[in-house]
Amino acid sequence: MKIRAGGGCKFCATHGIDLSGQSKVYVITHQEWKAVKIGIGACTGYTSRLIQHERQGWQLHQAREYTTGAAAYDVEQAVLGRLRQAGLVPFLTSDVMPNGWTETCSATRITAAEVWTMVDEETRSAEKPYAPRVGGRPRAAVLIDAEAAAAEMRACGYEPLVPYPGRTNATWPSRCTTCGHEGRPTFNAVRNAGQRCRICRAKETQAKRAATNAPKAQETMRAAGLEPLEPYPGSQTPWRCRCTTCGRETSPTYSNVNSGSKGCRFCALNSATDERASAEVRAAGLEPLEPYPGRTTDRWRCRCSCGNEVMTRLSSVRSGTTGCKKCPRSGGRTDPATAAAEARAAGFEPLEPYPGKTTDRWRCRCRCSTAITLTLTSIRGGRTACGTCSRGATR
């Protein structure tokens, strides 16, 4: 399994500690946590393990260099074995110290000096250390053949768009040969985990879900008076059906029908044929100048009975509004005679018919013979005089 997962020779590995290069064994302490820790590492560079520990508050007690990481590893494991037999490790948990918590022990039970004494003893009793490797540490790009990697990607359904990035865990821009989607999988995930295109996976999941829900969806649509004309496309996708009541084709979604809404928009008066829509606007005093646009909320060019050309909607006509600005508005909550009586009671004589809404501007004459424009809302709010009367009263 380790070979299939990308493992191999521990001395040639491109990750972890370099067993064929120089390394150190170190003992560190943490005063706040009252802990002692033993560890190994190259301890070079800004990202070395020892520097990371020092950033967390650990203090170096003592360290020793070894010719190879393998020799340092043997000494560390021997000391850890003795500590485990004494029941001293681990002391901290992974929540407190994610890296290296298994190599910690309590400072109240053993001191850093005692741990370092174990390091000295195991170093003296250690066998001849491994010979260091000649040359630098191998890189992952050297261990993986670029052409072979590209061939593996193609065998798994990916066409690489750029050369091999050099690392197995680096993203590799590729195109799915099935759906054409461009993604950024890693060679390691494709080779070892069998990672496939996420778009293809999503489509397969949706197809399986649709196949499972199709019988129930068809029963629900037929119970609502709709006969499906195509296979079940999904709950949120318009589904072409034929209404068994009016015989017209409509495209509701299964989600809406299942939640209780009417499936046929024609039967629900959300839509209408050209003949029916034309008859409705003619009954409202409008003559269509173009064919019905198809939806009740679409703008429709018509001519009013007064000769004015307007842009209205079938939904507006059904609610009682024609959209003509030259004609008095009808269908308001206040009767024109009642509105005129309210205006006269407040001291204003209407000069034109009531416009239809309480917020529309209305030309009237004040008791001082001044022509003004006001609204029925202002009259109901207590207005009884014009601006001329108000200034005269102030003087």
Results as ranks from 00 to 15, higher is better:
Ala207Gln: 15
Lys208Met: 14
Lys208Arg: 15
Lys208His: 15
Arg209Asp: 14
Arg209Phe: 13
Ala211Trp: 10
Thr212Trp: 13
Asn213Ser: 14
Asn213Thr: 09
Ala214Gly: 10
Ala214Cys: 12
Ala214Asp: 13
Pro215Gln: 09
Pro215Phe: 10
Pro215Cys: 11
Lys216Glu: 14
Lys216Thr: 13
Ala217Thr: 07
Ala217Glu: 04
Gln218Glu: 15
Glu219His: 05
Glu219Ile: 07
Glu219Ser: 12
Glu219Pro: 03
Glu219Tyr: 04
Met221Cys: 08
Ala223Ile: 06
Ala223Phe: 13
Ala223Asn: 14
Ala224Thr: 06
Ala224Glu: 02
Ala224Lys: 04
Gly225Glu: 02
Glu227Ser: 12
Glu227Trp: 07
Pro228Trp: 10
Leu229Pro: 02
Leu229Arg: 12
Glu230Asn: 12
Pro231Thr: 13
Tyr232Met: 09
Pro233Met: 11
Pro233Cys: 10
Pro233Tyr: 08
Pro233Val: 08
Gly234Lys: 03
Gly234Glu: 11
Gln236Tyr: 10
Gln236Cys: 09
Thr237Ala: 10
Thr237Asn: 10
Pro238Leu: 07
Pro238Ser: 08
Trp239Lys: 05
Arg240Glu: 15
Arg240Asn: 14
Cys241Ile: 02
Cys241Val: 03
Cys241Leu: 07
Arg242His: 07
Arg242Ser: 08
Arg242Ala: 08
Arg242Asp: 08
Cys243Arg: 04
Thr244Tyr: 05
Thr245Pro: 03
Cys246Arg: 07
Gly247Arg: 05
Arg248Asp: 06
Arg248Ser: 10
Glu249Met: 05
Thr250Cys: 15
Thr250Lys: 08
Thr250Asn: 09
Thr250Glu: 10
Ser251Val: 00
Pro252Glu: 01
Thr253Arg: 01
Thr253Val: 02
Thr253Pro: 01
Tyr254Gln: 02
Asn256Tyr: 00
Val257Leu: 03
Asn258Tyr: 01
Asn258Asp: 01
Asn258Lys: 09
Ser259Phe: 00
Ser259Gln: 02
Gly260Pro: 02
Gly260Leu: 03
Gly260Tyr: 01
Ser261Thr: 00
Lys262Asn: 02
Lys262Ser: 06
Gly263Ser: 03
Gly263Pro: 02
Cys264Pro: 02
Cys264Ser: 03
Arg265Asn: 03
Phe266Glu: 03
Cys267Trp: 04
Cys267Thr: 02
Leu269Trp: 14
Asn270Val: 03
Asn270Ser: 08
Ser271Trp: 03
Ser271Asp: 07
Ala272Trp: 06
Ala272Lys: 02
Ala272Ile: 07
Thr273Glu: 12
Glu275Val: 11
Glu275Gly: 13
Glu275Tyr: 09
Glu275Pro: 09
Ala277Arg: 00
Ser278Met: 04
Ala279Leu: 09
Ala279Gly: 12
Glu280Asn: 07
Val281Gln: 01
Arg282Thr: 15
Ala283Asn: 13
Ala283Met: 12
Ala283Phe: 13
